[in-house]
């Protein structure tokens, strides 16, 4: 079983190196999609022996994820894992994340930050709950964490996902695709490591609202 981790990265030189190093023992290959970074994201990833695919211009999370998934499939991945470059995900949780896929109990696994109680800034928790509700009403998907960046897909699931969104709204689009393509989904509890850095990189209020508008807008395209 070849497991490939995809890290979409836009100007993440501070944390990317450590993320790649911690990841190595858990996966067969690491793919970094350098989404038009202007810092040393690309060189750092290469130096740490990750396979780097570079977007000439910044396209956003959705664009980078799809590039990563296509690259992973080209590299003959059996299981594809996505995680954030900001260091908020603990690579030691990967075995737990991919277990349902190996046991064929799921095609898609979402790492949820809300299945166990853990500290999260209140405002962020409210925003997440709201977007979960949006995902439920728009797509009929019940999820405790619609915005999670830590996911695992079987090869079959990855091949069937049709991702069209460019930005952060991709997280909701993936859930919609899981529902539409009738993939078996499972949620696995994960920890999220909130540092000042990862908080500054995540979605604050205004980008959150933008994501919501994009999700609503994308309904025209679905």
């Amino acid at each position: 079983m070849k497991t490939v981790a995809i890290i979409p990265a836009f100007n993440e030189e501070k944390t990317l190196g450590a993320v790649i190093l911690n990841l190595k023992k858990h996966v067969s290959q690491i793919i970094v999609v350098d989404d038009g970074s202007t810092d040393k994201t690309g060189p750092i990833a290469r130096e740490k022996n990750a396979k780097v695919y570079r977007h000439l211009i910044n396209r956003g999370l959705g664009g980078a994820l799809k590039t990563g998934i296509e690259a992973a499939l080209q590299n003959k991945a059996d299981i594809i894992i996505t995680l954030d470059a900001d260091g908020q995900h603990d690579p030691n949780e990967i075995p737990k994340l991919i277990k349902p896929i190996i046991e064929r109990k799921a095609d898609a696994v979402i790492g949820s930050r809300f299945l166990t109680r853990q500290p999260m800034p209140l405002f962020r928790r409210m925003g997440n709950n709201f977007l979960n509700l949006v995902a439920f009403f728009l797509f009929g998907v019940r999820t405790s964490d619609s915005q999670s960046g830590m996911r695992a897909f079987s090869k079959k699931a990855a091949q069937s996902l049709e991702i069209n969104s460019n930005g952060m709204e991709v997280s909701s689009e993936i859930l919609k695709e899981i529902k539409v393509k009738k993939l078996k989904m499972k949620e696995v509890p994960i920890k999220s490591i909130y540092t000042d850095y990862s908080l500054s990189k995540g979605q604050g209020f205004i980008p959150g609202i933008k994501t919501l508008i994009k999700i609503l807008w994308s309904l025209f395209n679905f």
Binding site: G36, R46, N49, A50, K51, V52, H55, T67, E70, A71
Partner: peptide, 13 residues
């Protein structure tokens, strides 16, 4: 942009 990223061998390791 994706097409170029996936094709461009110089970009890869």
């Amino acid at each position: 942009v994706r097409g170029i990223a996936l094709k461009d061998k110089d970009n890869r390791k």
